[in-house]
Design a protein around this nucleic acid. Structure first.
Lengths: 223, 223
DNA sequence: AGTCTAATTGACCAGTTGGATAGTTATCTA
DNA sequence: TAGATAACTATCCAACTGGTCAATTAGACT
């Protein structure tokens, strides 16, 4: 998936220093810069309203580079989406094992979601754009496993064991994700609504969000 | 806010029949059709990616009409946003009274949010676009009261009374809204992820979402 | 040093889009 | 019936946007 890494540093030298030192003229560095800028732009505007020119400007290269490395705006979008979602969705698979205790499993999954979104606050926005604007077309295309399946499975198992209360697993799975992710989508607005000393994207507020979301969810689900 | 209604039906005749019978050539009907189409288009694509041509097509009029009645794409957006948000936010003010019992008040507010979003599933999407793409600029411009203030106030009061558990009112307010609204943002995708017999936007599934969201929230918040 | 590969650039293009404008016609009033 | 108002249409335009392409140049290898 990640493709050929370090094609440029095949010489004797460590290469790492070289890569960093090389300001331009480096495949991986440029590709990475474009991807990073694309991630931001797509998270702020979605595929449709994102501007390739802006991505180029932010990554410090010419627009032509985007087409040289990615071929089209859509393909760039796919790459950015995959780069962002893969770590989250792949890492969740481990929690789907039927052996684990449901309460602990749910807690672990929620914490993982909160951790990853906390590290990359743009991810929830990208997901929203993808679902609403593109109706999940590229999401489906990437063939990622559904986050909701993992959650629903755990919820059903916990309910059968009597650990969780009576609930609709499918609906609850969605609402759990909502309680985790919505915060990052509305963070910009919170800044002008919340008291001034609360900076929604500061590390402490992110930390508190994780605590609060987890509490709300666990309390809301346990029997 | 709603402006002059029924300017056209000032004659002797009842007017209602007239308004309906008149296919074109009616200020209010045309304006309404444009607004309705705009609401859909903006909910699906956001201000930036929305196309005036598409709005015109969907409302069955020429693009020129949009500029005749609304002046610009942005002004049309403001009107659509206001039309959609006003009922929700205005109606919530009544729950902010300090006399009401906090538990009941919270339940009432959440139910109202769920009712309104259930009736207009496009509203949450419009809110997301507004916050993420436009950073809440038009939202602020409209001068609506913050939904979060109402919720946080109730939460704080309930906490002081010991009805609610120890929690951060500001964060919890956000997470509550997330648990209510996220469903409608991801509904399109759910259709291809959920079992086939569950249609996310069917009346029964919407009803169930309301129940599940309310349960999750109340359980998650009560002492 | 010389050569080859590929990263990079800048000028350019065709299609789209928000918006303006001049003209047409239905309806209301006197 | 005549005129005035305004709803409505068709056409056009300038700016923007995704995408192309030929030319340039920095590094890698011999």
């Amino acid at each position: 998936m990640t493709g050929e890494l370090n094609r440029t540093m095949s010489s004797h030298i460590a290469g790492e220093l070289k890569t960093i030192a090389t300001h331009g003229r480096n495949r991986d560095v440029t590709r990475g810069a474009i991807l990073a800028a694309a991630e931001q732009e797509f998270a702020r505007h979605g595929l449709e309203a994102a501007r390739t020119e802006e991505i180029a400007k932010q990554s410090g290269v010419t627009k032509g580079m985007i087409y040289h490395y990615f071929g089209s705006k859509e393909k760039l979008y796919e790459s950015a989406l995959e780069q962002v979602l893969a770590p989250l969705l792949v890492s969740l698979q481990q929690f789907a094992t039927p052996e684990s205790e449901p309460g602990a499993a749910l807690k672990a999954v929620v914490e993982r979601i909160l951790q990853l979104t906390g590290e990359k606050p743009g991810v929830p926005a990208m997901l929203f754009f993808e679902v609403i604007q593109n109706r999940g077309a590229y999401y489906t295309k990437a063939g990622f496993p559904s986050l909701y399946h993992v959650l629903a499975t755990i919820l059903k198992r916990g309910q059968k064991k009597g650990v969780f209360r009576r609930l609709d697993a499918w609906h609850t799975a969605v609402n759990i994700v909502g309680a985790c992710c919505f915060y990052y989508c509305t963070a910009q607005r919170l800044q002008s609504v919340w008291p001034g000393d609360r900076k929604p994207l500061s590390t402490e507020m992110i930390e508190r969000h994780s605590e609060e979301a987890l509490s709300l969810i666990m309390r809301g689900v346990l029997a």
